[in-house]
Write a protein that binds this DNA or RNA. Structure first.
Lengths: 148, 148
DNA sequence: TTCATATTTGTAATGATTCCTATTATGAAA
DNA sequence: TTTCATAATAGGAATCATTACAAATATGAA
């Protein structure tokens, strides 16, 4: 089993305490697609001196090194995904939850590296709509989340 | 030929002067994917009293009514597309240009309206990388646009 | 131990967007 | 055509995510 420390070393990232904590948090929250704020608030419990800037710096650094993937589905903030296998995402306009979506896509799977003559580095596949659970409750409690 | 005024009326939108101007601008700039600021700056020439808020309000209203599509590919701002036929988008990390991409995608074409049990309202397919033109110049003039 | 360098911190600045309130335009009724 | 209620617009302040910057701290090699 690969340790977090080795994951960082392999990518040429010095494994500092805050970096390890941030990576650990992401690994433990694969379904959360946390915001910077969520990462910050949680790790603050362990590292009371933690700075929000450090979280931003670190996540941007991880992003550069390809350790995490930035999900920009909401349009207002970046959500972070521990970068394992690429997948699409679904944002529910009612509850705000983000779901991982696993569908066949030649571009997402890296089979196609070019499109219209342009070189592809990143693929972002986003769906927005009403999730399975919220569909059941449509009409019952019409919370307004139209901002999504 | 459908007039802009009728396009608005059909969607139940009162065709005010500023709304018509904004819609006209979008129709004349199908390849620009303009930002709010771009729309504002341009129309300001015709309507010197125009407020930035009006542009925001109007575009949000058009968005609600399905008259335009919001492209959130850069992650920092919304770009607007006159809503004709759905297509994917490519963002060049070097020059910042956004290209329309026409590829086969059952979800984008509306053949599939559901995914993993969730109801799809919007499909966003984004590619990021280096465009055809910038690929030629790689290594020559390494402008930093890493923020994309 | 010393020193250069990388990392972290905290605060201020930025930029897109929304909020709020006053003003102006519009369209129906009298 | 006037009057009035309502919708649209304007302008400035407020918000929120993110970045910039400078000072403090940690790290690791000599």
């Amino acid at each position: 089993m690969k340790t977090l420390k080795n994951m960082l070393k392999e990518k040429g990232i010095k494994p500092t305490y805050q970096r390890l904590k941030i990576l650990e948090y992401l690994g433990n929250n694969l379904n959360n697609h946390p915001t910077v704020e969520m990462v910050y608030e949680e790790i603050l419990k362990d590292i009371p001196t933690l700075s929000l800037t450090t979280v931003y710096n670190t996540l941007n650094y991880f992003l550069e090194k390809g350790l995490v993937f930035g999900v920009t589905i909401t349009g207002t903030e970046v959500r972070y995904d521990f970068d394992t296998k690429y997948h699409h995402h679904f944002l529910c306009k009612i509850c705000g939850q983000i779901f991982d979506i696993d569908i066949k896509c030649a571009y997402a799977e890296g089979e196609k590296r070019m499109v219209s003559g342009h070189r592809i580095d990143e693929v972002h596949g986003y769906f927005k709509g009403i999730c399975k659970d919220c569909s059941k409750n449509v009409g019952k409690k019409p919370k307004d989340h139209s901002s999504y």
